[in-house]
């Protein structure tokens, strides 16, 4: 840092650089703006790039798919910075309910539509007003709109939703049900980001079930919170840093309930690419019997 300042002090100020530039206006950049971007990038080459992939399978024992998935990866180009943008949603329609797939489809469609609409003008670099709502508010209104839609259009049905909005280096998560988000690190750590809203999890947290009992619990699929169920939906909404040097993984219980964490790690670490990793995960779950629909999204910050 001292070096940096020495360099800085030695340097003459560049003439007439526009000090305040509207955040929203974009290309074409002036020469000064270009220079300033290049200057910053040479100072610290920290441009991060977000990449992602998806794997899905109906499984070996079901005849239709009640999981729905959305994966959108892009970049918001600003004046000096490019901000990674990602929206990843996994919804698992509740089996045993009518129209499980209707609920999960609707949840993804409504939430995805709502959120992308908010960011539309940023993503397409249209002149814009700055976003009035906070990221958590965007997630909150989107998930409750999806909740109301499902209640109205497919009463009686329900779905899990785990949605992650990546903006820059942070992830804002909205979660209800027992699909899961994880931070997965190549060194073998696999940390759950979400907490299942399921009966078995609740009993486990209360210490009523041992690890073995959890594995063999007969009502593993009973959810205590689901989108579309109950009058008022209380989703978990929170913001965490994007896993550094690791992966963000979102999946339905057709994956996490079927293969072990060790196997998940092996599938990811053995794969040369993210898309191969997703395929490995789906194949592993199918090889283990594929009792349920399988959905997985992997995202990684490169650079």
């Amino acid at each position: 840092m001292a070096d940096f300042f020495r360099k800085l002090l030695g340097k003459k100020e560049e003439p007439e650089k526009p000090k305040q530039v509207d955040v929203a206006t974009t290309a074409p950049l002036t020469d000064q703006q270009l220079n300033s971007i290049m200057g910053i990038q040479s100072l610290k080459s920290e441009t991060k790039q977000l990449v992602s992939s998806v794997g899905q399978s109906v499984g070996k024992q079901r005849d239709h798919n009640e999981d729905s998935v959305l994966s959108l990866t892009s970049t918001i180009v600003g004046n000096t910075d490019s901000i990674p943008f990602g929206l990843y949603i996994v919804a698992d329609g509740m089996g045993g309910h009518q129209f499980g797939e209707v609920a999960s489809n609707a949840a993804v469609r409504i939430m995805g539509g709502n959120i992308t609409r908010k960011f539309h003008s940023y993503l397409y670099n249209l002149p814009t007003q700055s976003l009035q709502e906070s990221l958590q508010e965007v997630m909150e209104t989107s998930i409750s709109e999806a909740h109301q839609y499902v209640q109205r259009e497919a009463p009686g049905s329900g779905t899990t939703v785990t949605a992650a909005l990546v903006l820059g280096q942070q992830v804002t998560v909205a979660h209800v049900g027992d699909s899961r988000a994880y931070s997965v690190y190549p060194d073998g750590r696999i940390d759950p980001i979400t907490r299942d809203h399921s009966l078995v999890k609740r009993l486990e947290e209360l210490g009523h079930l041992s690890k073995d009992e959890v594995e063999n619990f007969p009502h593993r699929n009973v959810l205590i919170r689901a989108l579309g169920q109950g009058e008022f939906l209380e989703a978990d909404i929170f913001t965490i840093p994007f896993p550094q040097n690791g992966y963000l993984m979102i999946c339905s219980d057709g994956l996490w309930g079927v293969i072990s964490e060790k196997e998940i790690l092996r599938c990811i670490n053995d794969a040369p690419t993210l898309s191969r990793a997703c395929q490995n995960l789906v194949e592993a779950a199918n090889a283990a019997g594929g009792p349920d629909n399988i959905s997985v999204i992997l995202a990684q910050m490169i650079g």
Binding site: D81, E133, S134, L135, Q136, L167, G168, Q169, Q170, T239
Partner: peptide, 27 residues
Amino acid sequence: KGQSIYVASLDGTLYSLDSKNGWAIWK
């Protein structure tokens, strides 16, 4: 703290802003 900046305003809001790009994470 971490990647967030926290600041209040006379508009009656406590903001959490992303330190890298200024997006409001919550209000």
